[in-house]
């Protein structure tokens, strides 16, 4: 078990290396000059050259890459070309809203979606099942920004229950935090409820036809026990996979929600950095997103081993 985890952690290192190389090349090979953006419209060619020189943009690519990598390994993500602040500080500032939103969304989605999926599968073909399926089609097909603006218009503007926009850190009071994060959470939750409820229903349907579920019923167990212990436990692997990937997707893909609700999170940081060719920030954000994917995949794999005794990696 520990050997397996160590093995997986070691295997992640070359993955991250390739991601780093890819990110570096991608940005260097796309058109657009950061020095020009930094210098503004009125800069002379001499000023531009000086700026390029100070950013190291005149060095050969290989030299740029290695100096960047060695800095990274020392924990130095560079400074933002645009704001002049250390990148790591920028990211740290923006982490909390994004992580908070991802966590509240995933937790709420799981609490609602898993029981919905279980019940839909159990009552396959009934009204409840059809309702759940309808909900999930809606969740998939209505774009997040539409849901977001609808929510704002209904709950903030008309009913006045929630603020329209903004974020309050959790340290400044739990009530305020939830009050402000509620609407964006509901907005994103709909998509993830659709996703998780659907996968739960599909996996449950498959498992409910299995022999050991029949055995459990033949033992005279109550349905709740049959469903939760014998069926749900056995389809936890695909469900956990979707939850994990969903979490990673939220962190790397909250751009729209953060824009709609004006949350100062990673999504907005990424958009701003891309628009202004702020290389160090873009690189760091992409690397961070990859790291999150790698870590979450690792956690999913470990969960497999814990949930299913048949999976034992050597």
């Amino acid at each position: 078990m520990y050997g397996y985890i160590l093995q997986r952690v070691l295997a992640a290192i070359p993955v991250m290396g390739f991601v780093a190389l890819f990110v570096f090349l991608l940005l260097r090979l796309t058109p657009g000059d950061p020095a020009a953006i930094l210098a503004g419209d009125t800069a002379t060619p001499e000023q531009l050259a000086a700026i390029r020189d100070s950013l190291g943009l005149n060095d050969p690519l290989l030299v740029q890459f290695f100096s960047w990598i060695t800095d990274l390994l020392r924990g130095d993500f560079g400074t933002s070309i645009l704001s002049g602040k250390p990148v790591i500080e920028l990211i740290a500032d923006r982490m909390e809203p994004t992580i908070s939103l991802a966590l509240t969304t995933i937790i709420l989605s799981v609490i609602i979606a898993v029981p919905l999926g279980v019940i839909a599968a159990w009552k396959q073909g009934t009204l409840i099942d059809r309702f759940v399926m309808l909900l999930s089609v809606l969740g998939f097909s209505v774009p997040v920004f539409v849901i977001g603006y609808l929510m704002i218009s209904l709950f903030s503007m008309q009913l006045g229950w929630f603020p329209v926009q903004g974020f309050r850190p959790i340290g400044e009071g739990l009530g305020d935090f939830f009050h402000r994060i509620a609407l964006p959470t509901f907005t994103l939750t709909l998509l993830y409820i659709a996703l998780i409820a659907r996968i739960t229903r599909t996996s449950m349907l498959e498992i409910l036809g299995d022999d050991y579920v029949r055995t459990a019923r033949a033992k005279g167990l109550p349905e709740s026990r049959v469903l939760m212990r014998h069926a749900l436990r056995n389809c936890s692997v695909p469900i956990i996979t979707v939850i994990g990937i969903g979490f990673a997707l939220i962190i790397s893909g909250v751009v729209v929600t953060e824009s709609v609700f004006n949350l100062p999170g990673l999504g907005r940081l990424t958009v701003d950095a891309v628009l202004s060719r702020d290389y160090p920030v873009i690189q760091a954000v992409i690397l961070l997103a990859s790291l999150i994917y790698v870590v979450i995949n690792l956690l999913i794999d470990i969960a497999y081993v814990l949930l299913d005794p048949r999976i034992r990696y050597s």
Partner: peptide
Amino acid sequence: FQEPMTALNPVA
């Protein structure tokens, strides 16, 4: 049942 391979819950 016929199939002892599948008649028991594999994760319990």
